[in-house]
Write a protein that binds this DNA or RNA. Structure first.
Lengths: 238, 238
DNA sequence: CAGAATCCCATTCGATACTG
DNA sequence: CAGTATCGAATGGGATTCTG
């Protein structure tokens, strides 16, 4: 009985639930509500504050964000945490199970990228761009870089604003973490994520982006360009 | 301009859209609406009729099913088709791109299965059960059966009602198709899919299910039991 | 800044009844 | 069988206000 109650509480996020043992149904109960999966996506590269999330999800209202965070916390996908002093600010952070949703998010992106209706020119959040690299990196290309490891930095928007990441391509995978780009061997900078997406995925020449979209590439330029060539969009499917 | 209009039409399924180039957002626009992904799931093993879908999705109303089918058709996920005579009935069938959503559905299930809140005792549609096999089959186990191929049949509910499938395990994968079980080497039969799920995933002994849940196993029993041992639920994650 | 609380309208849901 | 039509109830989400 207590188990049943527990289950009902977890699923009470949006009142209605499918009565279905299928995992797909359960996942959609937790993540299928409007905005929910995008909130999880924004947390996928580390804890964020309420206002960070709001800024990364243009169009979401404070009320809806509050509701989604509550439902995801009840569902065990994320936890609220107060950063140790100094700081003391409250952040939201995925649980281990929440982080395990990355393959699900990746398959969503991989599937959508094969549609002709998908419009890649829309705005893009910094986290979206970084996650898309993990999804779209060519494994064969990664395997081929054995021995030429380098740390690639990314700064999107104002450097002080905090959207800085470091990617460390390796044959085994492509770890990406938030962090200082000071130690990186090459750094991409852009005012908006979409400018970098144009170079990685739309095939726009990097020197054109540097002239017209505010992109800058510093450090080992050859390494940066080799990195940028690792990504490939899948073929569209009728 | 015509391309822009096209895009807007496709996305008009439920009026609101994220303004986000991220594929995850686009996928959720098309599949994230309540019931949508479950409709796609039910079509994943072949075309179905309106009333089949309604019967497989307890709780969905005719209105909502109609709306979802319209939106999915506009989105290019499925098409309506009229079967050639005799028959002449109308069915819904996934497009090639719709079928490509299977990995997405699988990752949803794989993720949900790692939650402690997931309740596997709820009812299950026949298609859900068959798809779960493709998701949960142990690749190492499949590789180990090289040379012992056999065709495994499944009949769920009344044989005449049509929920019959044949699985052909092979080292390369586990194809599952709707079809006559007459040529199968072993056949599982059960009044409801959940009875078989109890054997595959909850570890309930098959002879107990045969005595108490209406399950029958015909043909090569040893083959059937070897097949049933190929499946493993992932570890729950905190 | 990080939400909680209210208000309020548009949308959506599900049930039922109806139809070619 | 394959939907359409209608309707009341529930929900959703934007805007605004308030608080510590």
């Amino acid at each position: 009985m207590s188990l049943l109650k527990e289950t009902k509480d977890v699923r009470a996020g949006h009142g209605r639930w499918y009565n279905d043992a299928c995992g797909t149904a359960f996942a959609m109960e937790l993540l299928g509500e409007r905005w929910s999966l995008l909130v999880v996506r924004e947390l996928m590269l580390g804890a964020r504050r309420f206002s960070d999330l709001r800024a990364s999800l243009p169009g979401i209202s404070a009320k809806v964000l509050t509701e989604r965070l509550e439902a995801l916390e009840r569902g065990g996908v994320l936890v609220r945490r107060v950063l140790p002093p100094p700081g003391r600010v409250q952040v939201y952070e995925l649980t281990a199970w929440g982080y395990a949703a990355e393959p699900f998010i990746q398959e969503a992106g991989r599937w959508a990228a094969r549609s002709r209706a998908h419009d890649p020119t829309l705005p893009l959040s910094p986290v979206s761009l970084m996650l898309s690299m993990r999804t779209m990196v060519d494994p064969a290309g990664l395997a081929g870089i054995a021995g030429i490891t380098g740390r690639i930095g990314f700064v999107i928007g104002e450097e002080s604003a905090g959207d800085c990441f470091v990617a460390t391509p390796a044959p085994q995978g492509l770890p990406i973490v938030r962090g200082d780009v000071a130690g990186a061997d090459a750094v991409f900078r852009a005012p908006r994520a979409a400018a970098l997406a144009a170079g990685f995925y739309a095939g726009i020449a990097w020197d054109e982006l540097e002239r017209e979209a505010g992109v800058t590439i510093t450090g080992e330029r050859a390494l940066a360009l080799r990195y940028a060539a690792l990504f490939r969009l899948p073929e569209p499917l009728a």
